[in-house]
Design a protein around this nucleic acid. Sequence first.
DNA 1: ACATGATAGGAAAACGGTTGCCTTTTGTGC
DNA 2: GCACAAAAGGCAACCGTTTTCCTATCATGT
Lengths: 345, 345
Amino acid sequence: MKLTIKDIAKMAGVSPGTVSKVINHTGNISQKTIKRVRKVIEETGYQPTFSAKSLATKKSNLIGLIYAGNINAELNHPFFNDVVNVFKNAIGNLGYDILVFSNNKFSKDKQDYLARCRHFQLDGCLIIAGDQIEEATTELDQSNVPCVGVDIILNGPNSSYVTTDNNKVSEAVVTHLYLNRIKEVAFIGGPEDSVISNLRKESFIKNINLFGMLTKDDWLQHGDYFEESGYQAMNRILEKSPLPQAVFAISDMMALGALRALKEKGISVPEEIKIIGCDDIEACRYSNPSLATVKQDKEKIGQLAAHMLHDLINGDVQPTSVLVDPELVIRESCFIDMGGTLTNR
Amino acid sequence: MKLTIKDIAKMAGVSPGTVSKVINHTGNISQKTIKRVRKVIEETGYQPTFSAKSLATKKSNLIGLIYAGNINAELNHPFFNDVVNVFKNAIGNLGYDILVFSNNKFSKDKQDYLARCRHFQLDGCLIIAGDQIEEATTELDQSNVPCVGVDIILNGPNSSYVTTDNNKVSEAVVTHLYLNRIKEVAFIGGPEDSVISNLRKESFIKNINLFGMLTKDDWLQHGDYFEESGYQAMNRILEKSPLPQAVFAISDMMALGALRALKEKGISVPEEIKIIGCDDIEACRYSNPSLATVKQDKEKIGQLAAHMLHDLINGDVQPTSVLVDPELVIRESCFIDMGGTLTNR
DNA sequence: ACATGATAGGAAAACGGTTGCCTTTTGTGC
DNA sequence: GCACAAAAGGCAACCGTTTTCCTATCATGT
């Protein structure tokens, strides 16, 4: 028989309302009473029922977790999961639990995120996406539900976002290559309609031109962020001669796919061609050669997302966006032998 | 202004109770009325509020997700995440959403899972663990809350579990090595008190003896499933001569660590020593040499867990346990050159 | 001792559904 | 057309909290 607030009230010789006030630190209650009520709660291990509380307050202390866009992977995406894990612990410390929207529950074809937020009376949502996304997410963004996006641009009245500074991603890669006398560079992006991908592509081209380096249409390929698509993109590049001196793929998985294509053709990395990926997933360290990459600061992104969402929920703050600086991680796939000049530390 | 069941009732010209019955397919309602009510619901997009429904029914259609034990990783564990992802979709189709327990919310030191289940009125829990675990999980297991464990042995009155057949894991590895004329094998297990690890270790030793092969105390090492611990365990093995002909590590990450240790010492894999891991994480395919492993059937485990939990919740079924067969995946780290005899397909 | 304001705590409505029971309507057989 | 059973749907209590408003008590200054 589960204990209710009335049982506690009876035991402590007060009214239910008073117990509620003690629990929530509201109203005017004497220290003596507080002590007494606390003691009963302590002894009985009483905990208010979530649904009753939620019903009365219209709050849930629950954050919805949405994997939007065509991320084929979801709970098993290497980069996003690290971010989500940091987020989970950070938001937990702020007093929230996380609700993962399972798909297929409501309408079959249409993910109605907003309806589900209202259904559960979620306090806010974390939207994870590698991409600009479906209507359902836009609808949610435009609603008054507090949302924080990771790697997605949100502009709703109560939405913030945090993302790696995509201009700096390409800038870092191109600058590094320039400093190492590499001139001819290919690019493997995400889907053509991916906002993130296009930002990186534009910035890539801009910086290539800025430094007087070379790229060309045949070298600008698109994939879907996954391994196989990188493999195919690389093969498309290989079909056209000449070969570039380096390839920048905007996900590690695609870079690994490119690596596989090169291995298959007997082209040596980094001697004949350098490869740089992006994300710094675990597999980078175990591939052969190990994969140079642009690392996104997962810890910082996760932490920021949690605090931004909390602030948004409390109405403390206007919607904002934060760009997190990426960091170049040089590994074997980009080692450059220049006879002692300009080597990498 | 959010719509309530009363609004719908008014619009449809019926009582709230009737609307409820239409929604839940209970009571005796005429087809005509059902149509009318349905239409209004459709047009307005009305959805019952979770907390109110949950309060009234004492059910939540929510499944708690617990990462128990000393899995340092959580939402970012490569193997478990794949399982959880399958589970999430499967359980979603059965009408549940998932609540992830954030840590640190309730008592600082003590995870009170049971209390939180009651608090949220969860219908059931999925317990993920690489290991036998804390008191809080045991308490939950022993309660009447329906639980399904993955890779953990549960014996509570309402608990089932599904796990890879750990005997067969070691059996498959040892048999394969035996068939390829390899006699001397080392073993890198998990923590000494890990039930799973000990099952695999016992079965490893049993099969080694059965085939008249050789292992010894110096070759039986323990780690914590993560990369660094595999590295260290391998170094401990290397300190003692002679070298075994093969090493079986019960996680891929530890196997990768072992690989790193061998590389560092200039010992070639698979020529001088073979390595086999376990789990079949992504990185296996990208390591050099690519890593042979024992694959756990994540798809099947996730699906089974979902359906077993659903059955348990509905009281359709007695607690059970299911063992899923593992599958050996041979890759470069275990390639065997025998001059044409007994090669691997 | 008294008016006054502050403080403590109680009563009850509200939150949005569900459900058992009871009444009304409908259909059936004669 | 009538008695009766079955079907349809309304009523109201209930789920466990919160919160507003109100009253009773208490301390204070005069």
